[in-house]
Each structure stands twice: as C-alpha cells, then as structure tokens.
C-alpha cells in the first residue's frame, strides 16, 4: 500500500458518500430529477459483483476485504434506492446511453483478451473493462442536460481523482516493486481519459463558483 493508492481508495469512498448525500437531498425535493444515471450505478454494481468473486477465497488484508464488502454493499444499496425508493426522481428519458453495447463490448473483449481463460479470470477482466466505461451513461446524461448541480460535479471530481491517483500509484509500484498489470493499466488509462473534459470544466468553472455548464 502506498499513499497514492490509499488516498485514491479514500476518494472512491468519498464519492460514494457524496452520492448518498445527494440522494438524501434529492428526496427532500419532491418530483425533482436526480440527474444521477441509474445505468452508471447499475454498471458499478455489476463491476463489483463480478470483480470480487474472490472475496472469500483470496484474503489479502482486513482493509482489502472490508473495502470489497463496502463497495459491493453500497453499490447494491444505491441501485436499490434508485430503483425502488426514489424511483420518482429518476428520469429514464435523460438516461438514454445504450449501456447494453458497453456491457457486450466489455464481455466480448474479456473473452478475447485476458490473463487466463477461466470463469473467475474472465469475470474479473470483464469487470475491469466495464469499470473503464461505466461512467459513460452519467457523462452522456450531463452532456444531454448541458448542466450539473454542484454536488454532482463533486461526485464526478472525487471519482476522477480516484482514477487519476491510481495511475500515479501504478507508476510508483512499477518502479518500487516491478508491479505490472497491463489489462488494468490500459483500461485504467482509458477510464481516466474519459474525465479530461469534465476536469477542464470543473477547474475552470465550478471551483471559481460558476455553474457547471457545457459550452
């Protein structure tokens, strides 16, 4: 464990708490659209469920197991909240990204490019590829509405920072322990790249107190 990865994981936790806070806030405004993509959240739940199939078989540390359990539980809880409890605040007309294509693409790629052709390895690889593109429905929704609430931008910022710090962590690990993981690196680089436009607007507008609006 290094500081980059620790802070990255903490930012990931922070993003989930921001999301839960945002949902709590949305509930108090009756009938208001949450502007949180259900598809992205459902994809994240799929990512964690397919990645942590080694939860009971492969013990790394108490930290590792606790985080895995938290990510699985919180992602399922968020999907549950959006699907049942706050259904009225979720507007499917804005959430129109064709998620089935990225799921299909990630599954096909996982079958072709993987470290070992076993059920667990293919599922793990699928989760890596799927995570790389899971944010697309959310970003697509943002593009469609052209603006975002501050709290939503903080959520995306926390997620983007988490991904960015993982890149730094991999460079650090490569030099300190000759750690290599090409599948994770390439998928991770793609994933972080998706946040570039968002980061630009976040830094030039939101942090200066302006509303998040697309040009």
């Amino acid at each position: 464990m290094n500081l980059f990865r620790l802070v990255a994981d903490l930012m990931h936790l922070v993003s989930i708490f921001i999301l839960l806070l945002k949902m709590q806030k949305t509930r108090s405004v009756a009938g208001r659209c949450s502007r949180i993509s259900f598809k992205t959240q459902a994809l994240y739940a799929t990512v964690f469920l397919t990645r942590y199939t080694d939860l009971f078989a492969n013990f790394q540390s108490l930290y590792n197991t606790t985080m895995k359990v938290f990510f699985i539980a919180s992602s399922l809880y968020i999907v549950f909240l959006m699907k049942f409890k706050f259904k009225a605040t979720n507007d499917p007309r804005l959430d129109t990204f064709k998620a089935q294509y990225v799921v299909g693409g990630a599954a096909a790629l996982a079958l072709i490019v993987n470290y070992a052709f076993t059920v667990q390895e293919v599922l793990w690889t699928f989760s890596i590829y799927l995570e790389a593109v899971a944010i697309l429905p959310q970003l697509f929704m943002l593009t469609k509405t052209g603006e975002a609430e501050v709290i939503t931008t903080h959520y995306l910022f926390a997620l983007g920072t988490y991904r960015g710090l993982y890149l730094v962590n991999w460079i650090y690990r490569y030099w300190t322990e000759y750690y290599v993981d090409w599948i994770v690196w390439i998928a991770g680089a793609v994933q972080t790249g998706l946040y570039c436009d968002f980061f630009y607007i976040y830094f030039t507008k939101v942090l200066k107190g302006a509303k998040f609006e697309l040009p």
Partner: peptide, 10 residues
C-alpha cells in the same frame, strides 16, 4: 518470467 499480477488492488 512474466510479472505476476497480484490482484491486491481494489
């Protein structure tokens, strides 16, 4: 040999 993937990351 090839570097082993540790899978210790989340």
């Amino acid at each position: 040999g090839t570097a082993e993937v540790k899978k210790d990351e989340l």
